[in-house]
């Protein structure tokens, strides 16, 4: 059964409609990647799922509605960790304070042990725990944003272009960490990316979005072979 099921999702900004009847499922424990060009609507999809913008249609996470009427709870409380486009870290707070904010709705004792766990997983964050987040490098900021979202112990992690602004090498390291997070925590991840090459390497399932519409779900391995995708995204 899918962990997240999305049906006929429509969303946009004011009068501008961006998503058109988007339907898909995300399997528990998988990394699902959505590929698409600039302006395809990838970020809009994630924003609709985490309630940052209003949407119609339905989306259910483990059977609980996350989109539509009666939804007043934050993404974190619904079990969604959203790492937004551009990372959204709190620059005027220290690394540790950022992480504590991520665990805000969890009991204090759990927060302490999670903190140590993430410092072990991302040693760079541990070394810089007392520094302001604004002083971190791009890669470190991305690690912080991911760890902060995971401090809330989500069921589903939404990642909006984590590779943005990172060198190919750093992106590779980051994606290896994502794979490890998936395996160690059995985390379900929905990843939105323009970097098809690296994301298809770590993903299990893949979909392509263009102009606010979503194509069929394929296995990531299958899509890697796809001629059109190779031409459009892999530069072959």
């Amino acid at each position: 059964m899918s962990l997240l099921t999305v049906e006929n999702l429509c969303a946009g900004y004011g009068g501008l409609r961006v998503l058109f009847d988007v339907s898909f499922g995300v399997e528990e424990g998988n990394i699902t990647v959505i590929l698409g060009a600039n302006g395809a609507g990838k970020s809009t999809l994630l924003r609709a799922l985490s309630g940052m913008i209003p949407a119609t249609g339905t989306a259910t996470l483990e059977g609980r509605r996350v989109v539509g009427r009666g939804r007043h709870r934050s993404a974190a409380r619904l079990g969604i960790g959203h790492v937004p486009e551009g990372r959204g870290t709190f620059g005027s707070l220290t690394v540790e304070e950022n992480l504590r904010a991520g665990g805000y709705h969890r009991p204090r004792s759990e927060v302490e042990s999670s903190l140590e766990g993430w410092y072990e997983f991302f040693p760079r964050l541990g070394e810089r725990r007392r520094q302001l987040a604004s002083g971190l490098s791009g890669g470190e900021q991305q690690m912080l944003a991911i760890a902060r979202a995971l401090m809330g112990k989500p069921r589903l992690l939404l990642l909006d272009e984590p590779s943005l602004g990172l060198s190919p090498k750093l992106t590779g390291t980051l994606f290896t960490s994502l794979r490890a997070i998936k395996e160690r925590l059995d985390m379900t991840i929905l990843l939105v990316e323009q970097n098809a090459h690296l994301s298809l390497e770590i993903a299990d399932d893949a979909l392509v979005m263009s102009a606010g519409r979503l194509g069929p779900k394929q296995s990531a391995a299958e899509l890697r072979q796809d001629q059109q995708i190779q031409r459009a995204y892999l530069g072959a």
């Binding site: 985490s50 940052m52 709870r73 934050s74 993404a75 974190a76 409380r77 959203h82 937004p84 959204g88 870290t89 709190f90 620059g91 005027s92 707070l93 304070e97 950022n98 504590r100 904010a101 991520g102 805000y104 709705h105 902060r148 979202a149 809330g152």
Partner: peptide
């Protein structure tokens, strides 16, 4: 902490609940 976070980046603070 929530006060400082909310004034630093309101959308992120909302996402984190």
């Amino acid at each position: 902490l929530a006060m400082r976070a909310a004034s630093d980046n309101t959308p992120s603070a909302n996402l984190l609940g």
